Amino acid sequence: MLNKLRSKLLESIRNKKLNVFGFFLLLSFLFLIIGKLSGKYTETVAFNVSFDKVPENKVLLEKKKQKINAVISSNGFNLLPLIFFNRPVKIDFESDLYYNEDHYSWIASKSSHKIKSMLGQKVEMLSVKPDTLNFYFETLDTKKVPIKLDANISYTVGYDVLEKLVVEPDSVTVIGPENIVNGIMELSTEPLALKDVNASFTMPISIKIPKMDGVLKLSTPKVTVSSEVVKFTEGAIEVPVTMINVPKSLTLNYFPKAVTVLYYVPLNRFNEIKASDFKVVCDYKEIAETEKNTMTPKLTSVPEAAKSTRIKQNKVEFIVVK
């Protein structure tokens, strides 16, 4: 009955050629409807189904949506919203479904209280059909894989990243068929290209999802890339050369006694750098079995703030003093 009243009301509203007679006719019809809605009716309302708290590694196989049909009774005013604005019944995967061999079952007698709470106290629920709904879920494989950042970033002259780029999260969980998931060792981001960067930044970037058959989901579709960018300056400092692994029976005279170390450092930390923070060594063992009279100086210790360090001189000459 309510469905017929709804159809007549909508048909009358769509008619744009209402004259005065039609207006009063419509008004009379509205009073008739109000009178009808005051009566008590019994209707069958079909509710769609939606799922809540489904594990990430579960996917519903059925494409056709199942419905729950509830026979309800109340006056028309209470039933009308349920007919026009039908909400889905939420099925909690953890508490409303029961595993039965190869499928999960929803049993009306154990879960109908949720439908009652949706209807409200003024609507009586007489019955629910079907008494059981069966759902088939596929169990997918999961695997945690690292994220590889595909970035091409250039900085304004005099600026650089303070430390390495930070990607959060640095790994994601891949969910899909076992034969596909097992072949994924890492995932790349979409290309990130930035030019003339001179300030710190934080931005989201999407993860590339492999194009292959089958269901494939990620625990998160994006990662956040951040970088602290500061102004740098170049410095130069004289550092003494230390000879190592020289036999006690030998005395070496070498030149130069100190070398120039060039380094790149944040401008605000330039005054922190001292010669004692560096260590430059020449290893006699490297040339002991040769007739060379030069050694290559190497940096074995640098301050944490310095980056892109290098020694200006690439040779230290020596003679053996007997």
Rank of each mutant, 00 (worst) to 15 (best):
E163W: 10
M1Y: 09
P266F: 00
I244S: 03
M212D: 11
F31H: 04
L133H: 11
E62C: 04
L262G: 06
I184V: 03
N253I: 09
R87P: 07
D213P: 10
N271D: 15
D277N: 06
K64C: 11
L97I: 04
L216V: 15
L252N: 00
G22A: 03
K143W: 15
P297M: 03
N314W: 09
L262D: 02
F93K: 00
V241Q: 03
F232A: 00
P55H: 05
L37G: 07
D213F: 12
T294D: 06
V197Y: 06
S117L: 07
D52N: 15
V71S: 08
N314R: 09
V320I: 13
F137I: 01
V265F: 05
V123P: 08
N19R: 02
K40L: 10
G214K: 08
E56G: 15
S308D: 06
P221S: 13
L194T: 04
S12C: 05
I34Q: 08
Q66P: 08
E43H: 14
F232R: 01
Y159V: 08
Y104N: 01
E62G: 04
P204V: 00
I115S: 03
D170A: 11
Y264G: 05
T260P: 03
L250H: 03
M118K: 07
A236H: 10
R269I: 00
T251W: 04
L2V: 10
